[in-house]
Design a protein around this nucleic acid. Structure first.
Length: 821
DNA sequence: ATATACACGGATCCCCTATTTCC
DNA sequence: GGAAATAGGGGATCCGTGTA
């Protein structure tokens, strides 16, 4: 039997004590194919240096005798081979120890605590990762596969019969083939409930959407209904219908938004209550949940995707949305929002509301489906790049991206994988702090004609150029070595040295770095979702390389490497600043990898010449690029007023495009009015080059506030509840707001954004938290608070640049100032 | 546990001293 | 008159949210 095949979902099972991979995918006809395969199971024992051959032989004989009988399973060492390998870049002799079952490798490793053995590695990858590494059946790649077709076969205990699939093949051979079109079957779902706590309320309705199918299933009937609504008699039947439709449609992907944390566990909880079996899996199994940092819901054979999780890792850093709510994310990426509907407990809903509720529920699934389609190219590219199942990739964090890329590329370097750090290692690592980047303090002012340079992927280019990594770190100084800049450690100045011989980690980064460049150009030449996604995948990988090395949970963590990278980041930035100054330019500001300076009377081409010259002096793949030319730029003092504020500035370019960094305008924990006022003030100052219009505008706003003409909506302050309510040591206003919500039984938990405003109170309360009111609570806003704690701080430092004391104007003490009109 | 460090700034916490209140 | 309560100043700390 021969067919083409794309691998989507990976699972494993044991049969007669051995491990098998069970891969669900499709052929190019759209038939669902299950591939059963096995692979050699082994771990590595790295031998001590200079071990004599006869000692090794004896050791091998000894290891061959290891047998285990644990957890009702018999495992033994089946074969031992001696190999020349590399570990952390150093040549080593290592035993490849083959055993029966992957799950027992850990116990076998425990038996290998022998004096001849230096280290044991390669047993903590997980079977699926190990399998993909060994057999190279990579996720979402196409293969031509050959093997025995299992048809009503008793092999593997009749596995093909228990699975709802078209073809089941026991794999003999496979070869990768050219990509074929693949249009996965996608089904999006969403539920509406009467309580947000999992399982505590009734599921009122459930919507399902695919490109050919739309349905709202509900037991809440109203007088008339649209065609897509299907009535059932109760909640139990709703759950049964859900299972029925999943079976009928049998999608490759079942997609929700926050469905790992809400929809799927909710469905499960209610199904348990009503004794309904949620047999969603292709083998009729029920969804399984695992607890990592967050709940994860897995369905066998159908890949459950919580699209929120993917967006959070791969896109959140580039997004404008202030929250990751479906509404905001849909607005940003689809230009479409949720249907307006005021959710209330079902007992309070009127007859006419139900129609709207159905529509609302349906539309959430529509948005979810569209988001999946929007991000499908990205998930596809990340999955193909990282070579882990899309189920995991769509939920992984940045460290996993980097780590899996490395693990799946070690073979090229004949490297044995490093182990995951244990609890103790993690504890130690977390205690280590390394000095970070350098930020140049700006001199506050409004400047004209500014040029900005910045380093391209600075940390990564430094790692590549200086060959910095855990494995290339030298124990002591060598003549031919890369070196860090001076690092202060325990009050001593030291340097770290790195081998000149390229390590596998920097080599892999070089590969990422070059692909990043190539795919970026490819995207610019031919912009489409696929080229964009590919470019983005390598952009993200490239950008998180240093973060990975400094991350306590990383296999290839190294604080020496991290400290060295950062020391060089500081060195190159400072060096560039002084070089620019030597060329008679005035440097205004710099942060980590950027330098802003005044162009004075120089032309753009002269600046570009300078850039060329600076680049010719940079080593390796390090590169400085032109971030842009700007008409004007604004820097202010800190609140304390003594120093120039870092990480806070605004620029305007020749096209009057404005770039605002760090100011309250871009901070979501300030009220809309303060943000808007500041935004307008900054804009007017940058456009006009003076403060006149801005001043007039502020006075108008102040007057409006005093006359209570401001809409309360514009005064709402939003703050995220970052931890469980009980864990707060300092009881700040947002904690009070959250407590109030609890009291009123408004659902609120960790991660939610709380909203409140500051109201007038009769008593002489001094703390802000005593004046907190929820948006729905009756009250008048406190004029004093909004003037002095919101508007004033938002504009004070900006006007200070023009020597205007805005506080006096707001207080009404003085109507004009020296430079007033 | 789930990429890093640097930075700002509001608000509270906490300690101290001075002043006020109470008996 | 003396002890206890309160006010308020100011640095430390907590906390959320940015930049890179």
């Amino acid at each position: 039997m021969k067919t083409d095949f794309i691998a989507i979902d990976y699972d494993s099972f044991d049969f007669q004590g051995r491990n098998y991979a069970k891969i669900i995918g499709r052929d190019s006809q759209g038939k669902r194919v299950c591939v059963i395969d096995s692979c050699p199971i082994f771990l590595w024992a790295i031998l001590k240096d200079n071990l004599k051959q006869d000692k090794i032989n004896k050791l091998i004989e000894k290891i061959k005798k290891i047998k285990l009988n644990l957890k009702g399973r018999k495992t033994k060492v089946e074969k031992v081979e001696l190999h020349n390998k590399n570990f952390l870049g150093k040549p080593v002799k290592a035993l490849k120890i083959f055993a029966t079952n992957y799950k027992d490798l850990h116990d076998i490793a425990d038996k290998l605590g022998l004096p001849e053995i230096e280290k044991r590695r390669g047993y903590d990858l997980g079977f699926i990762t190990h399998y993909i590494n060994e057999k190279k059946i990579n996720p979402l790649h196409w293969y031509e596969i050959q093997g025995e077709m299992l048809n009503n076969s008793q092999e593997f205990g009749g596995i093909d019969m228990a699975l709802d699939i078209d073809l089941c093949i026991k794999l003999d051979s496979s070869k990768e083939i050219k990509e074929k079109p693949f249009a996965p079957k996608i089904l999006a779902y969403d539920i509406e409930t009467d309580a947000l706590e999992i399982g505590k309320g009734e599921i009122l309705m459930l919507s399902l959407i695919s490109n050919k199918f739309k349905k709202v299933i509900t037991w809440k009937k109203s007088k008339s209904k649209p065609d897509y609504v299907e009535y059932v008699k109760d909640e139990a039947e709703l759950l049964e219908k859900f299972v029925e439709y999943i079976k009928k449609i049998s999608p490759d992907f079942l997609v929700g938004y926050f469905s790992d944390g809400f929809d799927l566990p909710y469905l499960k909880a209610r199904a348990e209550k009503f004794n309904v079996k949620l047999t969603l899996g292709l083998d009729n199994s029920q969804p399984r949940f695992t607890r990592g940092i967050r709940l994860t819901g897995k369905i066998k054979g159908i890949t459950h995707i919580d699209i929120l999780k993917f967006i959070r890792t791969a896109y959140a850093q580039y997004m404008k949305s202030e929250t990751l709510s479906l509404n905001e994310v849909a607005k940003e990426f689809l230009g479409d929002a949720k249907k307006p509907f005021n959710i209330q407990h079902s007992s309070k809903l009127q007859e006419k509301d139900w129609q709207k509720y159905y529509e609302y529920n349906l539309h959430d699934s529509i948005l979810t489906l569209q988001l999946f389609e929007k991000f499908w190219p990205d998930m596809l590219e990340f999955t193909k790049t990282i070579k882990e199942p899309i189920f995991d990739v769509s939920r992984a964090g940045l460290s996993k991206y980097t780590e899996n890329y490395v693990l799946h590329n070690l073979e090229k370097y004949n490297e044995i994988p490093e182990k995951r750090p244990g609890h103790e290692d993690i504890g130690k690592r977390r205690g280590i702090k390394v000095e970070g980047a350098f930020v140049l303090e700006p001199k506050p002012g409004l400047y004209e004609k500014i040029a900005i340079f910045d380093f391209t992927s600075m940390h990564t280019s430094i790692m590549i150029t200086h060959n910095i990594s855990k494995a290339t770190l030298l124990e002591k100084k060598e003549k031919q070595a890369h070196e860090s800049d001076e690092i202060t450690e325990k009050n001593k100045k030291i340097k770290y040295y790195f081998s000149k011989k390229q390590g596998f980690f920097p080599a892999l980064l070089m590969e990422i770095f070059e692909k990043r460049k190539k795919f970026k150009q490819e995207y610019q030449k031919n912009p489409n979702p696929i080229t964009k996604a590919r470019s983005n995948a390598f952009k993200v990988l490239s950008a998180s390389a240093h973060g990975y090395v400094a991350f306590f949970g990383a296999r290839y963590y190294s604080h020496e490497a991290s400290a060295s990278i950062l020391s060089l980041v500081r060195k190159f930035n400072k060096e560039t600043i002084s070089k620019v100054e030597k060329n008679k330019y005035k440097v205004i500001y710099g942060d980590t990898d950027s330098i802003a300076f005044l162009m004075e009377n120089k032309s753009e081409s002269q600046i570009k010449e300078l850039l060329k010259k600076l680049n010719s002096e940079l080593p390796g793949v390090m590169h400085l690029e032109l971030e842009g030319f700007f008409k004007r730029g604004l820097w202010v003092t800190t609140r304390a007023g003594k120093t120039g504020a870092k990480k806070k500035y605004a620029l305007i370019d020749k096209k009057n495009q404005i770039k605002i960094r760090g100011f309250e305008t871009v901070r979501r924990d300030w009220c809309r009015l303060a943000r808007e006022v500041q935004n307008i003030v900054i804009r007017q100052i940058l456009e006009d080059g003076n403060e006149k219009k801005a001043l007039k505008y502020i006075k108008e706003i102040v007057k409006k506030i005093k006359e209570r003409k401001i809409n309360k909506q514009d005064l709402i302050i939003k703050t995220q509840l970052k931890k469980p309510l009980a864990e707060y040591k300092a009881i700040s206003p947002h904690v009070i707001a959250a407590r109030k919500m609890k009291e009123k039984e408004i659902p609120i938990s960790q991660g939610n954004v709380v909203e409140y405003y500051i109201s007038e109170t009769s008593s002489k309360k001094k703390l802000v938290r005593d004046k907190v009111k929820l948006p729905g609570e009756k009250g008048e806003y406190e004029i004093k608070y909004y003037l002095e704690r919101q508007i004033l701080p938002a504009v004070e430092n900006i006007l200070q640049v023009f020597n205007i004391n805005i506080k006096e104007i707001i207080d009404g003490k003085r109507q004009t100032s020296l430079s007033d009109f």
